[in-house]
């Protein structure tokens, strides 16, 4: 499959990616500040959804607690920036390392469970993280959260880059998200990624191929959680103030919708889904108070009519066309 597809689609895909990147680089030149801010948040959510989907679409594990790693990345970075030192690089590292550690600890227990039990245990841990962020006032600011997180300059050697401006932070986000998405894409195409897909398809059988299935699940869990942490780390200085609601389970449900909308079995599906989700929410909530009716109806329609998501549907059509059926 890889062979034929790479010959026919390889070039087109290269041009597609190049074109998309060019468009993303040009965004601040053509769009208003309001839209650039919106695009920055969209990029962060794209990373959140794509890293979530490594566990969901690729490994077949539905987590209801991924807001935990997102918010630990955000709180770690935010706390470091506002209380310790205004070094963006160190702050990001702190947030990411913390989400890595927490993902490892939680994942260690969760990957032993399957299906709904897995989902409920991730929910349980996610809500414990929420309770801690909410109630540990002295550290996290309690229900008010962290307010006034600085967005400092970024210095490498002699060069200093300004990130407090809207386009500045947009570009920082674009670079970080770009690198992370590239890494995730490579992981999805690696031997490790193929093992994850086979775990999704039939996790009991994988053990009988001589593969220590749980370690691979844990690996996927940790990678997924850590990159959610990167998204959170970017989110804290972007929003400037964060509150415990980013760790509530409704936040964990967002990447689930995004992945489903775009398609869980196509790598870029959740990216499309995240963009669409945010776009729809912006449009519909500007037009009516009752945006959940629309979201609910869309969700029901997708499950019944388009379970492969938008990209899944398109790629099925393309494949069918190529096979001449």
């Amino acid at each position: 499959m890889e062979k034929s597809r790479s010959i026919i689609w390889g070039k087109n895909r290269f041009y597609g990616v190049a074109l998309a990147l060019l468009a993303l680089v040009l965004v601040p030149f053509f769009l208003s500040d309001f839209l650039v801010v919106f695009a920055t948040e969209m990029l962060i959510m794209v990373l959140f959804a794509l890293s979530f989907n490594l566990l969901f679409g690729y490994t077949g594990l539905l987590s209801f607690g991924h807001a935990a790693y997102f918010s630990i990345g955000a709180y770690g970075t935010g706390l470091f920036l506002s209380r310790v030192s205004p070094s963006l690089l160190l702050a990001f590292l702190i947030g990411i390392v913390f989400s890595f550690i927490v993902a490892f600890l939680i994942g260690y227990f969760c990957v032993r469970l399957d299906e709904i039990y897995f989902a409920m245990l991730t929910l349980a841990f996610g809500m414990m993280v929420h309770a801690i962020l909410w109630k540990w006032d002295s550290l996290t600011g309690g229900a008010d959260g962290l307010v006034g997180i600085p967005r400092p300059k970024f210095s490498i050697l002699l060069a200093t880059i300004e990130f407090s401006s809207i386009p500045g932070y947009y570009y920082l986000t674009l670079v970080v998200v770009g690198i992370c998405v590239f890494i995730l894409w490579r992981v999805s195409r690696s031997p490790f990624g193929l093992v994850l897909k086979s775990i999704r398809e039939n996790h009991e059988r994988v053990e009988f191929l001589g593969i220590a299935m749980r370690r691979y699940r844990l690996g996927a869990f940790v990678i997924s959680g850590t990159f959610c942490g990167v998204a959170g780390a970017l989110f804290a200085p972007f929003e400037r103030s964060i509150a415990p609601d980013i760790s509530f389970w409704t936040k964990s449900a967002e990447p689930v919708f995004m992945s489903l909308l775009g398609g869980t079995k196509v790598f870029f599906g959740p990216a499309v889904g995240a963009s669409l989700f945010m776009y729809l929410r912006e449009i519909i909530s500007g037009y009516t108070e009752l945006w959940m009716i629309y979201l609910g109806a869309i969700l029901i329609a997708f499950v019944i009519f388009l379970p492969g998501g938008i990209l899944g549907f398109i790629s099925d059509k393309l494949n069918a066309g190529r096979r001449g059926t």
Binding site: M1, E2, V187, S190, F192, L194, V206, I211, Y216, G219
Partner: peptide, 26 residues
């Protein structure tokens, strides 16, 4: 998964290549 991938996973497993994270599988 395709027939190719179904056979490929055990080949990777026997050659202990399954933990490669970043190298392209093909």
């Amino acid at each position: 998964l395709t027939v190719y991938e179904n056979v490929r996973v055990p080949v990777l497993a026997r050659k202990r290549e399954t933990s490669r994270l970043l190298s392209l599988d093909r």
